[in-house]
Nucleic acid binder design. Structure first.
Lengths: 245, 245
DNA sequence: GCCCCGTGTGTGGTCGGACCACAAACACTA
DNA sequence: TAGTGTTTGTGGTCCGACCACACACGGGGC
């Protein structure tokens, strides 16, 4: 036996059943006691494996009885990605600079492709959030929440779940730092006004199909806040050219 | 108490200690029994939390006694990222197309920045791997292993741990699929020759500081294999958006 | 004195059993 | 028939008991 740890056996069994099609999204996993008996391991080991799958966003568990109870396969990657990145930032495995730089790369390419692809320019959700952000009596926290939703909805427009989950993870991993940067701003109203303007300019650039402008706006938008609050520096690298297509 | 689940209490405690600096990379966690007693939970719950942290790449555990035993904070994100993405692909939460598209975005930008930044052009490890790949008596599997190391070493040259971990996860998540695509190739020797040529062209473009050429080469290189094996199509084009509900 | 080796001790790893709260399905009553 | 109480099985948690392991200690043997 290659894997001496019992919980890894459980994990491998489930991954194998997933790959072989025995287990499909929406299916119920066998009960913890049944799984333990099948694999010849203790129930505690099964639970450790299930806990991992739950945190990774692969299953949803519910106690009680009936169809809604038990462990159900539901691939919701954003939660697991967020947990992973948040903890890695806490453990100093990820630096805030690296997070921001990665976000910059992904989001720049995202808005660029949104602008280039006529099919994707119907960005309804971002525009709605844009309107919500116009309200003048929003607290900074409320504004930042809408801000996060705005950026996330842009990524969602790409229809790429990997991209969406990654962006959600990147965002949530530095959420506390973004909030912590609020007091360091010279003037919140001024910053809010600037952010509103940049958001609108970004949406307009995408709507107009101006990829180059979208790239420029999102770059300045993202780097702006972090430079202003001193959270991350050196994020901005060399100017980004058009991708070869 | 917002979190009723005992294992979440443990996770939150550790995350809190991490953020407050009480726990630092390299530190030992308290023993499982001590942790359980401190938090007023059972040892099983502590173990479930520790298992999550281990899979996420946050800690390393070893039994026995002495300084090398116990749970030690070691932020190694690549392992956790690989596990997450591999399982999400297995559970159909991530599609191979989305994985490849994300990889394309990240790697294109990576090689572009490597070419643009003179400080990063000293890509010694990739060049070494390039030499190893010249050997004519490599099995396809061995070649693909070197191929993976080559691409990963390029990302590592960026010095961004988030990027490195993400790329490692993306790569390992579709590793099985890449291997499965081997038999579908018309001619492995021909493909190997083409890959060698593209790798060399990429390294040359980076060394010459030609970012635009590097983007072009890596784009064709990545899409080429997947198109040839039929693993993923429409990688370059953006997917069709879902109708707003 | 120094070195080697058995033993002690504490660690994580695992198992089994025992409860609890909960939710659905069932059986029973009015 | 409608409503209600009970049964049943689930995950969630805790506890106690081992095991294998690796280091620390200490007692010979040199």
């Amino acid at each position: 036996m290659v894997e001496s740890r019992a919980w890894q056996v459980v994990l491998e069994r489930i991954e194998h059943d997933l790959l072989s099609g025995t287990l499909q999204p929406g299916d119920h996993l066998p009960g913890e006691r049944a799984l333990a008996a099948d694999l010849g391991v203790g129930r505690s080991s099964v639970r450790e494996a299930l806990r991992v799958l739950e945190v990774l966003g692969l299953i949803r568990t519910a106690s009680g009885s009936g169809p809604r109870s038990g462990a159900i396969i539901v691939a919701l990657p954003s939660g697991g990605m967020s947990a992973l990145m948040r903890l890695q930032v806490a453990a100093q495995g990820f630096s805030v600079e690296d997070i921001v730089q990665t976000r910059l790369i992904l989001e720049t390419e995202t808005v660029s492709r949104l602008a280039e692809n006529p099919d994707l320019r119907t960005i309804h959700t971002p525009r709605t959030l844009l309107g919500a952000m116009e309200s003048q009596n929003l607290s900074p926290e409320e504004f930042l929440t809408l801000d996060a939703q705005f950026h996330l909805s842009l990524t969602e427009a790409m229809g790429n779940h990997v991209l969406t989950a990654t962006m959600a993870g990147l965002r949530s991993s530095i959420e506390d730092y973004v909030r912590a940067g609020l007091p360091r701003l010279a003037s919140w109203p001024a910053t809010a006004t600037r952010l509103r303007h940049e958001h609108r300019a970004l949406a307009d650039a995408i709507g107009a199909g101006d990829a180059e402008r979208a790239r420029s706006v999102i770059h300045d938008h993202i780097t702006g806040y972090y430079l202003e609050t001193g959270l991350a520096e050196d994020v901005t690298a060399t100017p980004v050219p058009e991708p070869a297509s």
